[in-house]
Structure formats: structure tokens, C-alpha cells
Computed example of a mutant assay.
Amino acid sequence: AILPYSQALEKLAPHIQQVSMESNGKGVSIDGLPLPFETGEIDFGEPGTNGQHSFYQLIHQGRVIPCDFIGVMKSQQPVYLRGEVVNNHDELMSNFFAQPDALAYGKTPEQLKKENVSEHLIPHKIFTGNRPSLSILLPTLDAYRIGQLLAIYEHRVAVQGFIWGINSFDQWGVELGKSLATQVRKQLHASRVNGEAVEGFNFSTKTLLTRYLKETSDVPADPSTLLPKI
């Protein structure tokens, strides 16, 4: 999981997802031999506090997911409000520092008992700890630091490929879907213009295409240019 505590990095996780999963999702070695193990990692993420309210439950008490926490020392948009204990960036960074601790050390039944937690709730509030994470703390968020961050992930992807003995620099898995989409496009054109029945597909796809064509029969077969109204 890639967890930047900066809204400016909201597109970092999808970018690394593409870099990593498209590069290292392979089933054969660089020599074309079937691999006796699975390759590639499943990358996902959200800016910190968004993720905390969507999938951190799984990270803390579900399956073990290695996490990269990314924080920035200097805020790009500092906000100070009179009467608040800390400013907005300190509030954000409080969560950045707390989450890796929670993953690493968890919470024991003994600690919960000292907090007078009801006996029947203790099993539900135990955190096992010993869950891996990496904390990256950037001085500022500028082009140079972002370049360093991208270089770390790109280097990691390449090294993983070398270790697994795969070619991280091709993406043949993307081609099959595109090829099949071309066949579907031809079928849609033939069905709309000439009324041809759906043929040459497996039963499931044929059924779906037939239903789709039936429910969109009002689409003009040879329309003039039509753009959405703005």
C-alpha cells in the first residue's frame, strides 16, 4: 500500500500501480520458461486520512499488507486556527507518525484490560503488531524530491524483475484485451449497420453482447457527428 500524507500526491499510488503491475505481472522468465512462483505485487493506495477511513481496517487487523508511509515536513498550504491545539499540517503528520507505530507494536490483551475494556470486546480490539511498513519523510514537496521518490519506486520495480528473472520492460498482457476489443468493435458495427447476429464469441460474451445490442437498439447505425451538450 502506498500511503502519502499529502493531497498533492493523490495520483502517486495509481502511477506506481501502473509502473509496477504492468512491468512485473509476468508468468514466464525472460527466457520464456514458466515460472514456479508468482511475480508482481498488488499496489494500491490513497492519501493518508482518506485511506484510514476506507481500507486501514484491513491493514491493521486483516491480512498482512506492507505499507509505504510518505510524509512531508513542510506544508504547501499551512492553516493556523486560533484555539486549535496544533495547525492543520501537524494534525495530518500526527497520523503519519502514529500509523506505523500501530502496525509495528499493535495492542495486547493486557493493555486493553488496563484500559478497562469490556471482556467481550477485548478479542475485537487486539492488534497483533509485527506488520511491515516503511516511512519516507521528505523535507519539502518539490520537483527534485518527487523525482527522488519516483526513482525509488522505478528502481525497486527493476530490481524485482532482475531477482525474479523476468523482463520488466514488456507488457504483452495488455495486447490480448486490445485485440479482443477490436473483434468486438467490428461485431458492434456489423450488428448495428447490417443487422448481423453476434457470432464467433464464447457463450458468456455472446449473451452479453446480444443483450447490450438489444437494449441500445435506438443508437443510430450511421449517425452524423454528435457531441455532448456543455
Rank of each mutant, 00 (worst) to 15 (best):
K74I: 07
S75D: 05
Q76N: 13
Q77H: 10
Q77S: 08
Q77K: 13
Q77R: 13
P78F: 01
P78Q: 01
P78R: 04
V79S: 08
Y80P: 00
Y80G: 03
Y80D: 08
L81P: 03
L81S: 10
L81H: 13
L81M: 09
R82L: 12
R82W: 11
R82V: 12
G83P: 10
V85E: 13
V85K: 09
V86L: 11
V86R: 01
N87R: 01
N87W: 02
N87E: 02
N88S: 09
N88V: 00
N88Q: 01
H89R: 03
H89N: 01
H89S: 02
H89T: 02
H89G: 02
D90E: 13
D90Y: 03
E91T: 03
E91D: 12
L92C: 05
M93Y: 02
M93H: 00
S94F: 14
S94W: 08
S94E: 11
S94N: 11
F96A: 05
F97Q: 04
A98W: 10
A98E: 15
P100G: 02
P100A: 02
P100I: 08
D101S: 15
D101G: 14
A102M: 11
A102N: 09
L103F: 07
L103N: 05
L103I: 03
L103H: 05
A104K: 14
Y105R: 14
G106Q: 06
G106H: 07
G106L: 08
K107S: 14
K107W: 11
K107C: 15
T108M: 06
T108A: 10
P109F: 04
P109H: 05
P109L: 07
P109R: 08
Q111T: 00
Q111D: 13
Q111H: 13
L112T: 05
K113L: 10
E115F: 12
E115H: 12
N116T: 14
N116F: 14
N116W: 12
N116M: 15
N116I: 14
N116G: 08
V117F: 07
S118A: 15
E119M: 07
H120Y: 15
H120E: 15
L121W: 11
L121Q: 14
I122W: 05
I122C: 06
P123R: 09
K125S: 15
I126R: 07
F127H: 11
F127T: 07
G129D: 00
R131W: 06
R131Q: 03
P132E: 00
S133P: 05
S133W: 01
S133A: 00
L134A: 01
L134M: 00
S135Q: 06
L137G: 01
L138V: 07
L138A: 04
T140M: 13
L141P: 01
L141I: 03
D142F: 10
Y144T: 12
Y144E: 13
R145E: 12
I146E: 14
G147E: 12
G147T: 09
L149Q: 03
L149D: 03
L149T: 06
L150Q: 11
L150G: 07
L150P: 07
I152K: 04
I152R: 05
E154Q: 11
H155V: 11
H155F: 12
H155R: 14
R156D: 04
